[in-house]
Structure formats: C-alpha cells, structure tokens
Design a protein around this nucleic acid. Sequence first.
DNA 1: ACCGTGATGGTCT
DNA 2: GACCATCACGGTG
Length: 234
Amino acid sequence: MSVRRTLLAGPVLEVAPKLLGMVLRRSTPEGVVAVRLTEVEAYDGPNDPGSHAYRGQTPRNAVMFGPPGHLYVYFTYGMHFCMNISAGPPGQPSAILLRAGEIIEGTDLARERRGAGGVAEPRGAGGVAEPRGAGVLPGGPPSRARAKVLPDRDLARGPARMCVALGIGREDDGVDLLAPGSAIQLLPGTRYDGEVATGPRVGLREAAEWDWRFWIPNDPTVSPYRPHVPKKRR
DNA sequence: ACCGTGATGGTCT
DNA sequence: GACCATCACGGTG
C-alpha cells in the first residue's frame, strides 16, 4: 500500500486536507519514529503572499518547484527546522506544511530527541548518563509526576517539534517520500473520514486571514494558535 | 490558562 | 539590516 503521486499533484487546497490521518515514517540506525498527521497548512506559491515561493525560485525553495511528494525542509529563526511536502503539478511551487501529529511508533526515541526526561544539555557538560527511569514504578505512574515529563501529545505538537521528534534536518531537504527505498516515507495510514476543521495559518504576517490551515477537530496533538507578532528593534 | 520576550542565524532586499 | 511558516520559559491570573 502506498500513496500515489497523482494524489499529491492536485490543487494544494484539495490535497492538504487529504494528508490528515496519513503517516510520515522515518527510519534511521537509531530506530523508527512514525507520526500520524493531525494538522497541516497549504501554501500556494505565486498566488500566495505567505509562501516562500511567492517571489520566485531560489536555492532554498527549489524543492517546491519540482515534482510532488518531496520533502521541503527549511531553517528558520536561527534554530528551527520545519518541513513541507511538495504538491501540485511540476512547476507549480505549492507545498503543505506539516504542523503537528501524533506519534504512533517510536515514542521513546522521539522523547529522547525532544530532550524530555532525558539529556537536556545544549552544550557544555558531556554527560552520557540517561537519568530516564527505565524501570516502571510498581504502582503505575505517580498521581502527579514530580519530575516534569513532556506529555506524549507534545512530542510532535508544532512544526519544529515534529522535525526534532523525527530527526529531520537540512540534509533531508528534497527527499522523495514516495520512493520505495526512502528513509522517510509518506504512508496512507488509516483513512481519516471525519470532519476537518479550518482556520487561519499560524504566525504569518501576509495573508493572515486566509483559512488555509486544516486539522482534525478535538485532537490533542494539534498545535496552539499563535498570531504573528512583529519583533522589536534593539 | 494566557501573554510577553529572548534566543539565534539563514535568506533576501 | 530586516524579517522570519518557532519554541521554551517566566510572569501573571
């Protein structure tokens, strides 16, 4: 079973909601992490002032100008990666931002990468020990955990968080998600036939009022909405 | 729960 | 030199 490339080649506003419920699965020597997509945003190139492709092709956004089904990874805010799936016919630089999902495989590895309950050293002390409680407590989890543990729902709740959970970085820019041997695969998952919620895209200055964000209603992994805030000069 | 703010560097004008 | 398709944290309610 696989996702057909033609399914991704349609108009991006039609394709985007179809991604809900699909699975993105990445395998590395460390193991496998898979995410069920619960929240996405559409970006429509030349017709969309909010798109990175609005002003034409550059080295950074080149993947969007290629065939559908490839991963467009970009680096932003000096520290975060976000990923899109290219969509639409070749030459039509549209893409779908993957904003959030539910981890359905590899939760422990995802949690390690997210730094929760494990190492939390950006730099400095080179501690190797992992203070994670490998042994489950004999009475089940404490009613209120004393150590703050990141809830499962937050592991991939937000575009940059999802990239961390899956271990996605700049070297993954351009990967074909539909190629049989690819280390990152887009899979059909269980078809989602329920309602789809729509609303404004998150964090945009341009076209902030367009309802091009799609999510599974009431899903706890959907990211919180944040309007664009202009930065103060220093 | 919401709200404000600092961090940090690539990309484009 | 401005602008980011963000996040974690600390303050307040």
